[in-house]
């Protein structure tokens, strides 16, 4: 049931995704602030399918040359492509403190035992500015293979970007900057190079008192 209703292709399903800041309160406790978060969901057949977005509407927000979003989508499979609109929670009090930890954690599951590679490209005006590539091995748990990218440190570029964004006096200014800031994550099978999941992330700043929010869309080409 999760196919078409959550971030899942026929080969790999995203279980959880978060970018966070951990601030030590005292030697034994941490305060964890979530900038963005996709929690575990268990859709059923009675849930509606995700809304669709025509991928051509966002091509220019992501790398367009060789290996870009267009080429990736043409290679397929088409059911592996998603768009996530995040409303990021920037309400945390950020200070320059070396005891702070900025990280990203994500989890995936599959019925197949394989080695996955996750490429995360941060883009400014559609051009890649930094890329992180991570390789993860499967762990067999409860009848399926689970992949965990646990507490991957956020790069300097992203930490500086968040700090600069926070310093802008008005939310509309932050959103104006974020209009040209995107992230493209491609998870592939390390050995066969098949695309397992491709998630395009776009952002606004949350105005909610309930923290980070998101909408997920299927990317299609009509």
């Amino acid at each position: 049931p999760w196919q078409g209703r959550s971030i899942a292709s026929s080969r790999l399903r995203m279980l959880e995704f978060s970018a966070f800041l951990e601030q030590p309160q005292d030697p034994e406790t941490f305060n964890k602030h979530l900038f963005v978060h996709i929690g575990q969901s268990n859709p059923t057949f009675s849930d509606p399918y995700l809304e669709a977005v025509d991928i051509r509407q966002i091509y220019d927000k992501f790398p367009e040359k060789k290996g870009g979003l267009k080429e990736l989508f043409e290679k397929g499979p088409p059911n592996a492509f998603f768009l996530v609109k995040f409303w990021a929670d920037l309400s945390a009090n950020l200070q320059d403190d070396s005891s702070f930890f900025y990280g990203v954690s994500s989890q995936y599951e599959s019925s197949e035992n394989m080695i996955i590679t996750s490429s995360t490209k941060v883009c400014s005006f559609g051009k890649q500015v930094v890329e992180k590539v991570e390789t993860e091995y499967a762990r067999f748990e409860n009848g399926r293979y689970v992949f965990r990218i646990h507490r991957s440190p956020l790069c300097e570029y992203m930490i500086n970007f968040i700090h600069k964004l926070k310093h802008l006096p008005e939310k509309y200014m932050m959103n104006s900057v974020l209009e040209n800031f995107t992230i493209l994550q491609v998870v592939s099978n390390r050995d066969t190079l098949e695309t397992l999941l491709c998630v395009a992330y776009v952002f606004e700043v949350s105005t909610s008192e309930h923290g980070a929010q998101h909408h997920i869309y299927r990317l299609v080409k009509d």
Partner: peptide, 24 residues
């Protein structure tokens, strides 16, 4: 007009794209 000169607000995106969920 090149697509990269078109603001997101003027593109064909679902209405929900501009509606922040209010879930706790």
């Amino acid at each position: 007009t090149k697509q990269d000169q078109v603001p997101m607000r003027k593109r064909q995106l679902p209405a929900s794209f501009w509606e922040e969920p209010r879930l706790p």
